[in-house]
Nucleic acid binder design. Structure first.
Length: 137
RNA sequence: CUGGCCGGCCGGAUGGCCGCCGGGGCGUUCGCCGGUCUUCGGACCGCCGGGCGUCCUGGAGGAAAGUCCGGGCUCCACGGAAACAGGGUGCCGGGUAACGCCCGGCGAGGGAAGCCGCUGGCGCACGCCUUGUCACAGGGUGCGCCGGGGCGAACCUCAGGGAAAGCGCCACAGAAAGCAAACCGCCGGGCCGGCCCGCUCAUCAGCGUAUCCUUUUGGUGCGCGGCAGGUGGGCACGAGCGGCCCGGCAAGGGUGAAAGGGUGCGGCAAGAGCGCACCGCGCCCCUGGCAACAGGGGCGGCACGGCAAGCCCCACCCGGAGCAAGGCCUAAUAGGGACGGCACGCCCGGCGAUUGCAGCCGGGCAGGGCGUGUUUCCGGCCCCGCCGUCCGGGUUGGCCGCGCGAGGCGCAUGGCGACAUGCGUCCCAGAUGAAUGGCCAUCCCCCGCCUCCUUGCGAGGUGGCGGACAGAACCCGGCUUACAGGCCGGCCAGUAUC
């Protein structure tokens, strides 16, 4: 792969399969006012992957699209080294995601990743029943 | 100009930086295949597929929404016929692939200003009438105001077939709810009821009383008095009023969604289609119209209340499921195994070196099955024999379906129009944990605040996590619902001016 000279690098690989989302939910997570970030260490050491979860609770289709796009843009503008290889990251939209200020949203994403990468994540409790069905990307 | 309505269209604009998905070109690299050359190492060319780089290009809506109708497409092999069941539609004609949609027409309701004295009330006026004059009163006529009724434009609404085929229902209220009837009321008749004086007074109201009864202001007896009542005489004798009875009526009141045609005049004891005029309604005829229907004439004096969105009747239409359809890729929608039941027939050809038996393969008959609401039938189609039960196997990966279409735009022609035909031109989203975005600047619009003055539909400044509803998911035609702000056009009525 030729080296890129852009600041952010190419967009990381996307998580698209349900089982990967369920696996990430079993990892550690970090809630912020506008976003919740989940992280999971994979068995391999391949490039980092990211996924987005926007539930119907957030709003109708237009609002959900907007929330997902803002999260995706915020992740794209991250420095490359914040997403460590061999890990999966899932960004979950909250009620404030579509409306909050974009710079604070980016700041929260960055802070959450810093904490997680420093090993300061909350361990998620296994839920008795399966997680709710969600629409994400 | 004022007022009342209707339709169409748009749905922020421009630019910068960084991104996402599709398509295409070029370059590069890898792989498969084919060809040419070869010193057998390979080199070159072409095609297809993938990665990377770079450039060009396209990328949400009028409702993408609700998923309510109608289709295309796919599968249930296919096509056809009949009956029944179930569902839908419902004025007429047209448009359309089709529709519950659209257009045109019809009918019924609603509909402003205004018009009609048709009706009630109030006010004013009068060479009018009752009345010779004046006043008053009543009536008449005219005008004004208010209320009622009728006629009213554009336009709006209509679940707009049938209620003299049948069944059923019509709550509450009301006298009465479907077959006539009569609560208040109106009218006629009969009887009674007037005032004054007198007499009488059993029973009854009032007062008084008691060797009476009794818990009692009560009962009972007697007396007074003369009320009601009865009766005699005198006065008034007409009308009205009241009560009861008999009869006539259905105008008015009141109830209701609805009360047995409406309005007016005549008529009458009072009334009533009782009679008449107009309107409505029913039947018949004529005329116009493809038709719904309309107009006219005649007859009928009114019979036939409403609800079919309760059942029902009539006419017409309709098979089911849905792109998670369906197909391809890998073992993978194909077929395997076990048990039970019923059948286990015939003929022809071939294989088996030959003949016979058993077997296998192909074909035919018979038999069986299928035909997606059910049943039946016809042409057909299917069958390691058929049927049933069970075991085991399968779906959530990738690719196709999946973007040239009842397509958009323009012009012409035909048509009142929906629309049709012809010509030209354009190619216009294809995601799938789901692309079309993030940030910034300027302008536009909106809201708040401040300042200025020539006070206004004004200018300037400043702030705003202000910019409607809302995101394609197989595709079209409709309907319905949501929506900030804005643009354009048209219709009708009245008024003013030319």
């Amino acid at each position: 792969m030729p080296a890129t000279n852009t600041k952010h690098g190419p967009p990381p690989l996307r998580i698209r399969q349900r089982r990967d989302f369920l696996a990430a939910a079993r990892g550690v997570f970090r809630p912020m006012p506008c976003v919740v970030v989940q992280m999971r260490k994979r068995a391999d050491n391949g490039p980092a992957r990211v996924g987005f979860t926007v539930t119907r609770k957030i709003g109708k289709a237009v609002v959900r699209n907007r929330a997902r796009r803002r999260l995706r843009e915020a992740v794209r503008l991250l420095p490359r080294e914040m997403l460590r290889p061999g890990h999966d990251y899932v960004f979950i939209a909250r009620d404030a995601t579509p409306t909050c200020d974009f710079t604070t949203l980016m700041q929260q994403v960055r802070n959450a990743l810093k904490k997680l990468n420093a090993g300061k994540g909350h361990v998620s409790r296994p839920r008795a029943k399966g997680g709710k069905r969600s629409l994400s990307s």
